[in-house]
Design a binder for these strands. Structure first.
Length: 737
DNA sequence: GTGGCCCCTGTTTTT
DNA sequence: CAGGGGCCAC
């Protein structure tokens, strides 16, 4: 098949896109810049295989990283072909692997009703292990250990394969070992296991591997630069026999290093599939010229990349609007006011996104939006599924589904309170462990009067409470078989009197909690269950594997608030990026590591390239972090943007020229925003406690305290009748009297 | 065993 | 600033 006789529906692709879509069978690597039609190429390729080459959809596997991307791909393919092709598999790495394991995991000892442990569950298991091994959480922080374990698993390393170089790593390794046993006992897998275990399944069982290779003769992968070693291996093994592997990615948008992603998998791919056809997509259909120029300038500073030069035919467009606000409150206010102004120009709220480096930054924005009555939707942050009440209900469901799930057992054994305290729980844990069983299954044996197990050493009262709890779960389990999940949730809420527990006072917070529980019932009723799936299994799996962006409703007319990470793959006519300060972007944790710095730069690049028409870049003069306010420096990345694509922007109605307008910094190539009165330069006065000073507005006062900060002084001055005011020596026009 | 208070600490990004 | 752990009083 060549481009010349391509069917008409390929005509809306540019030559490079066509080249990729109609590439001969065999491995294909598409390196696609932002906005160059990456997803389009992927969906057209799938459609092309089916429609032109007559490949049965059954033989196609398309893999993405988020459910949202998977759904989009499925829909777009359906649009092209006029209906969803039967048997086509589209899903995330995690959901696909979970499915494989439910079906075939038994040969490597994975029960088909396994639960998926999330982050918090993992920490819970690690803490339990630390207690068991009598290790101090202070010395061996669970968070670190979980990262350690995750990193190992992403590299496909089992505990015995991890080589510890220092004592501490050896401890981590042992915790990993015991952690893994505990997961197995609980019939649980964590996120990383889903991938790693499938790879193990494929490696250890040729027959299973061959079955999947025969089924999936075409493998398509989106966002290939985000794969970690385990995911790469998954793709490689599956494609080994037929080599029909079509991957699309962009090294410049690799922003998940911290969770094991390695964009060098692109290079590895070229080595493992040397015959791979390489296609570069450089034409950008999204952004205007100025925005693209900034993006190109930023990313070209990175050393490890395949040079690409994006171009657009959209014209130069509006210059980038750069602004400094005094602090995060003013920054948010500026964004809000500007959004209102833009809606007057015909933009809709839904056209606009505000992006930031850390979730904590969303707060100031939310507050401003509430004040200005701007509708918004927040992606991520305090996620619905992380809410306590939601997790409680899910723990009940998980325990019903899988009685060995000790983490869920521990979570709810005393929720609502039923007189089973920490001591009792401790006894139960030790007792079950010695018996080599999970807690609930062990209790079941006791309840059944089995003589294969000694009852736990508990007092009568505690024992009764525990057995009653076990019976409750057992009854729910019996009643629930095959029951639709919403009904099951309702039944269990009733049975354990969860509503009374949540609504024990009638605060707003309680009501909101209860609403969340009801929302969960609602979610359960919207989940699609396949014909051969158990409803509860399906529900729990969908819920475990949702990502933040999955919940983004594009149809809704609200401003989108999201992290730069969550923004990847999206586009908006108007984008605000806030908090462009050293320490935030680039993040302070990355500044002394060159590789990390390159990743921060890519993150900025991803943000910039989300914008179609208007891009606003904001930073503050001072920012409150961890409760205290510090002076901030503009992000060093800002100085990498060519000056001629930036407009120093100050909208008419909002022309404040606060202290932030003045700055002398080598980071700072841009003209200050107008209005500065204070002459720059000249010696900055030094102050000391007890000194008498004069302020132009407050008059004469006494210095109460002086704190040295970032080369400046924070001066507290008491004024008679006006209280104590805080100033920065460099800015406030304080003079010694 | 429960609930409340206080201190302390650790603060990135997430399937 | 906020979540968690430790400690205390019921």
């Amino acid at each position: 098949m060549t481009v010349e006789n391509a069917p008409s529906w390929l005509e809306d692709l540019n030559p490079q896109q066509q080249e990729a879509v109609t590439a001969e069978l065999g491995p294909v690597l598409v390196l696609a810049g932002p906005g160059s039609g990456k997803t389009r190429v992927l969906t057209y390729r799938a459609a092309y295989l089916i429609y032109e080459l007559g490949v049965p959809p059954f033989h196609i596997l398309a893999v993405t990283f988020t459910n949202k991307a998977a759904n989009e791909m499925r829909e777009r393919i359906a649009e092209l072909l006029g209906g969803t092709p039967r048997g086509l598999t589209v899903g995330t790495f995690h959901s696909i692997c979970a499915r494989f394991l439910r079906r075939d995991g038994d040969v490597i000892g994975i029960p088909s009703n396994f639960v998926i442990y999330d982050d918090n569950d993992q920490i819970g298991v690690i803490k339990a292990v630390l207690k068991e091994l009598d290790l101090d959480e202070k010395l061996y922080p669970p968070r670190r250990i979980s990262n350690f374990i995750s990193r190992a698993k992403n590299e496909l390393l089992t505990p015995d394969m991890v080589r510890a170089r220092i004592h501490r790593e050896e401890i981590f390794r042992r915790v990993y070992e015991r952690y893994q046993e505990k997961l197995r006992e609980a019939h649980a897998l964590d996120f990383d296991d889903l991938i790693m275990e499938v790879v193990r399944l494929f490696r250890e069982h040729d027959d299973v591997l061959e079955k999947y290779q025969r089924r999936y003769q075409h493998v398509l992968v989106d966002e290939f630069q985000d794969t970690n070693t385990a995911q790469y291996e998954f793709v490689k093994i599956l494609g080994k026999s037929h080599r029909q592997v079509f991957v699309v990615g962009d090294e410049d948008q690799s922003i998940y290093r911290f969770r094991g992603a390695d964009f060098r998998n692109v290079l590895r791919f070229r080595k493992d599939f040397p015959e791979a056809k390489l296609v570069l997509l450089e034409q950008n259909y999204r952004s205007t010229g100025h925005i693209l120029a900034a993006a190109n300038a930023i990313i070209s500073k990175n050393s490890s990349r395949t040079p690409k030069q994006l171009f657009t035919q959209r014209g130069e467009g509006t210059k980038i609007r750069l602004r400094e606000a005094y602090d995060e409150t003013e920054e948010a206010d500026f964004v809000a006011n500007e959004i209102i102004r833009l809606t007057g120009e015909g933009y809709r709220f839904g056209d606009i996104a505000v992006m930031y480096r850390t979730n904590a930054q969303s707060r100031a924005l939310e507050e401003a939006f509430l004040r200005h009555e701007i509708p918004y939707q927040l992606v991520g942050a305090t996620r619905f599924y992380a809410r306590r009440e939601v997790k409680d209900v899910l723990a009940y469901l998980r325990l019903i589904h899988n009685p060995s799930d000790d983490i869920s057992f521990l979570r709810i054994v005393n929720v609502p309170a039923r007189g089973i305290g920490a001591k009792t729980v401790g006894v139960l844990q030790r007792w079950a462990r010695d018996a080599g069983l999970a807690i609930l299954p062990a209790l079941r044996l006791v309840a059944a009067g089995s003589d294969s197990i000694e009852p736990p050493p508990l007092r009568r009262r505690a024992m009764d409470a525990v057995l009653s709890f076990a019976r409750t779960i057992e009854e729910l389990r019996e009643e629930s078989d095959g029951m639709p999940v919403p009904e099951l949730i309702t039944a269990l809420l009733e049975k354990v009197k969860y509503k009374d527990y949540i609504l024990k006072d009638d605060s707003e917070e309680s009501k909101e909690r209860w609403n969340n529980v009801l929302e969960l019932v609602n979610v359960a009723s919207t989940i699609l269950v396949g014909p051969d799936e158990d409803p509860l299994t399906a529900f729990l799996e969908r819920v475990s594997l949702v990502s933040d962006v999955d919940n983004l409703r594009e149809s809704e007319n609200g401003v989108t608030l999201l992290t730069l990470h969550a923004a990847k793959g999206l586009e908006f006519p108007v984008v605000f990026i806030v908090g462009l300060e050293d320490g935030l972007l680039p993040h302070s944790r990355s500044i002394d590591e060159p590789d990390e710095m390159e990743e921060e730069r890519r993150l900025f690049y991803v943000g910039i390239t989300r914008a179609k028409d208007l891009l606003y870049l904001l930073h503050t003069f001072r920012r409150t972090r961890y409760g205290s306010s510090d002076l901030s420096m503009p992000s060093r990345f800002l100085s990498e943007i060519p000056k001629d694509v930036v407009e120093n922007y100050s909208p008419g109605s909002y022309g404040r020229s606060g202290p932030g307008a003045r700055r002398s910094s080598r980071n700072w190539p841009f003209e200050p925003l107008g209005g500065s009165k204070r002459s720059s330069g000249g010696p900055i006065p030094r102050f000391y406690a007890g000194q008498r000073v004069r302020h132009p507005k407050f008059g004469v006062g006494t210095v109460v305290s002086v704190v040295e900060k970032n080369g400046d002084q924070e001066v507290r001055v008491a004024f008679a009748g006006k209280g104590i005011k805080l100033f920065l020596a460099k800015l406030a026009n304080l003079e010694a009297v």
